[in-house]
Design a protein around this nucleic acid. Structure first.
Lengths: 207, 207, 207, 207
DNA sequence: TATGAATGAGTATTCATTCAT
DNA sequence: TATGAATGAATACTCATTCAT
């Protein structure tokens, strides 16, 4: 059928790419986003710094690829949760919002990454316009089920967008409090607060 | 009385400290938090890099001092707003929450600063335990009027803390969306959303 | 006869060599001599960097080959000009000197190349002794018609060599002034000056 | 009178600057101009690479300073030679041209430096407009005595400029042949040829 | 107090060359 | 032949911090 050599080579290439992205994720975890360096990522991946440039054209491109994969996983998680939930708008709203929150509660650096690369709304150096657009689209897609559930509850477009933004904002804020440890000041869990926010929302909208 | 020479020297010393902190704030404004350097701050203040170390033990200490003053201004703003507002718990709640939000909407770098220094919940290098504790206390104080209003509305301590955390979180999240430009995806203003959040809260609690 | 397969392979090999040398010339033109890199040359030739090493043992060897071909073209140009000129010693002298000059006025990188590879009089790394000797011989050949014309005018060997060196030097100097833009300081053209030099020479020698 | 401390500090500063410039000159001598690096210069001067930047803002600035001093020495040499020579235009012409030549015969790297920094006629990065203008002016000044002698011989401005350019060119060309060793092909000395050129010039102009 | 020089570790990226495939 | 991955050394320049003066 197809040439096995090419396919295998492609697989090896993809594997090495993943190896570097894994290394990057590990470095981000330990050193934080700003503390990471090409050298550190290369070392973690078992490479020389220069070797990285055969797989990615720049440091920012690595960041972009890590974020891209992260958004894919986020999207899959949200989609799955919505599909599995009871098929009522409030249940889909709950599933979408809480899965979004849970994803970033478990992957703190991915949130940093998102805001690092998205800051100012301008694409940073090294991120091609196409990648930047793709990332934006993926973020929007991960929030779309929230808007869809709201639309099914009868709200107009403006209201859907506003409530989606509000929910996104609430999640981001609680996650920030959680990841910086500030939530401890209040003796309560970010998770519970997010749940409470969503229940209040559903109650208000459905009631 | 006390020795005037010492007092005058102290005043001069404090003045120079302020000069450096002003310079730091200006550099933060222009270069961002991560882009700032001791040399840039020194230059802006009319000093040499080395001279800074007579006034602050480290770069992080400057950050801490800027944050400290920022929290003082935040506290004053919240206190004033609450004192000026009609003396009913819902009005005090509104005043406290919206003033908190407005402060960081106007001072984006101060928010960065807070989360930069508070990240991980561990005190970063250069920040003494005392300063760290003081900063925490001031942050708590700036949020206290929210809790106080809630207490006046009859809620127990746990509820007060939970709602305060929730409001804090909502503000932080919307501010993040605002400052990173993500809010534009939704075609609505962070300010309006915050107002909406507070009204919903008051409606729910008072109703 | 000879084995046709080998011959065809040789032809293909030579063709590919030429392809690479053309690419090198184009890169030199655009990036300059020091700005050129094996990768840039390979890219221009439609190759990978590593592939170049099947055709040339080193970067300097490519330089050498480009220079070699350049000297062949120079030789041809000078020979043609002398052959075409009226068959008197002064006319042959004019033709040879001015053609030499014109060649490098039109091909600035080739002059750089010559002095890059010939600097110090020691063969640089990557240049075999044989290639170095060949290059020297070709340079000498391109100047030989000048010496020959002088000899025909009755000068002894030492005088011929001296005047040839002087003319070579004058051309090189004016070309340097031309290519670096310094000639502009004087508001005159290198070409006119070269012509003037040759006329004065002819006048002095013939007179 | 004046503050000795300031004066001494200035002297120390100037000394260290010279130390670095000396180191740069030595590196240029050994490694050539393109092979030189900030690290190599720093090592030669007994410094760390970073330390260099307290004395010079960039690598090109070092090049500029070395060239600046070189041109000062050249100017002094030419001026002295002209002042010492018999006070006739031909003698002054001889003195100026041959001293110019002799200077660069003894300081080969300084010639490279000049053409490196002056290439294209555009000031290279790191060279301020003021420095670039100053260097240009100094080069012009070093050639001015040639033009002055010619003017005294009765030539108009255009002729003076043309002959100056021609002489400059001749010197540069012979120096290039000398420094690259090409002059050996002809079995004669660049110095003798330069002398011969000047004598022919004087003979032609004065005759 | 303040300066200015110095350090040493750090930054992303490029390069000629080698080699397994 | 040709590729693509890899190396190891190199590049100019910046940084927070220290210290003699």
């Amino acid at each position: 059928m197809t040439e096995p050599r090419t396919t295998r080579q492609d697989a090896v290439k993809a594997l090495k790419r993943e190896l570097i992205l894994d290394a990057a994720r590990q470095v981000f975890e330990v050193e934080g986003l700003e503390g990471a360096s090409i050298r550190a990522i290369a070392r973690q991946a078992g490479y020389t710094a220069g070797a990285i440039y055969f797989h990615f054209p720049s440091k920012e491109a690595i960041y972009g690829a890590v974020l891209d994969e992260s958004l894919d996983r986020l999207n899959a998680a949200v989609r799955d949760a919505v599909a599995t939930a009871p098929d009522t708008p409030p249940d889909r709203l709950r599933a979408a919002a809480l899965t979004f929150f849970a994803f970033y509660a478990r992957n703190p650096r991915d949130l940093d990454l998102g805001f690092y690369l998205f800051r100012g709304g301008l694409q940073p150096r090294g991120l091609t316009d196409t990648l930047d657009a793709a990332l934006n689209e993926k973020l929007a897609a991960s929030l779309a089920p929230i808007g869809a559930a709201l639309a099914d509850m009868g709200f107009d477009d403006a209201a859907c967008r506003a409530v989606t933004a509000d929910t996104f904002g609430h999640a981001v804020g609680l996650l920030t409090l959680h990841h910086t440890g500030r939530i401890r000041m209040f003796g309560c869990s970010a998770d519970d607060l997010m749940r409470g926010y969503v229940e209040a929302l559903v109650g208000r909208l459905a009631g």
